[in-house]
């Protein structure tokens, strides 16, 4: 076992991990942050997406020790300081961008990363950016809508393009 230290959702955390411990495992089992989900074993589904040093990564495809010293943000760290949902989270609720909720944390984290890079994406850009996040419930319609709305754009106008 090796000791690993990183900053997760603004707090410094330290834990004992094996070489093979994945970041997702450290978050879920080590820290009890079970909002980060595991939906596949081939790095495709994106349910495990978190931010590492501000970048979206698939936490099931990164070793915990590779994140030593990094700043990690998970779905549990996305709310506003007062505990209310952040703009992107709120937009997912407002536009019914989730059903079973399982892909949702990864979807929100990827969407937040997109908006950080590209504050006013087009519909096509949203769809392309989310290609690494699989949702089986929504047919993506309301997810794309939620992301566009969170970017402050008029959704019907964009959708009609």
């Amino acid at each position: 076992m090796t000791t690993v230290t990183m900053t997760v959702n603004g707090k410094t955390v330290t834990g004992e991990v094996e070489g093979r411990t994945l970041l997702s495992g450290f978050l879920r089992e080590g820290l009890g942050l079970t909002g980060t989900h595991i939906g596949c074993d081939t790095s495709q589904c994106g349910a495990c997406v978190v931010h590492v040093d501000g970048k979206a990564v698939k936490s099931c495809t990164m070793f915990a020790l590779d994140a030593a010293g990094a700043t990690v943000k998970t779905i549990e760290g996305m709310a506003n300081a007062d505990g209310s949902l952040s703009v992107i989270q709120q937009s997912f609720q407002d536009h019914h961008g989730l059903q079973c909720g399982f892909c949702t944390p990864g979807m929100v984290m990827s969407s937040a990363a997109l908006l950080a890079e590209n504050p006013k994406p087009t519909e096509a850009e949203v769809r392309h950016y989310l290609e690494g996040n699989i949702c089986r419930c929504t047919g993506y319609h309301n997810i794309v809508k939620a992301v566009l709305a969170a970017s402050g754009q008029d959704v019907p106008a964009v959708a009609a393009e």
Binding site: R28, E29, G32, L33, T34, G35, T36, H37, I38, T74, I75, E76, M78, A79, L85, Q89, F92, Q93, D94, H96, L98, G101, F102, T104, P105, V108
Partner: peptide, 20 residues
């Protein structure tokens, strides 16, 4: 709006594998 969304969007859902 769906009330269940709050927990899902906050990472506070309680799926079977989340339980220890």
């Amino acid at each position: 709006k769906r009330r269940e969304d709050i927990r899902f969007l906050s990472g506070l859902g309680n799926y079977t594998d989340d339980m220890q």
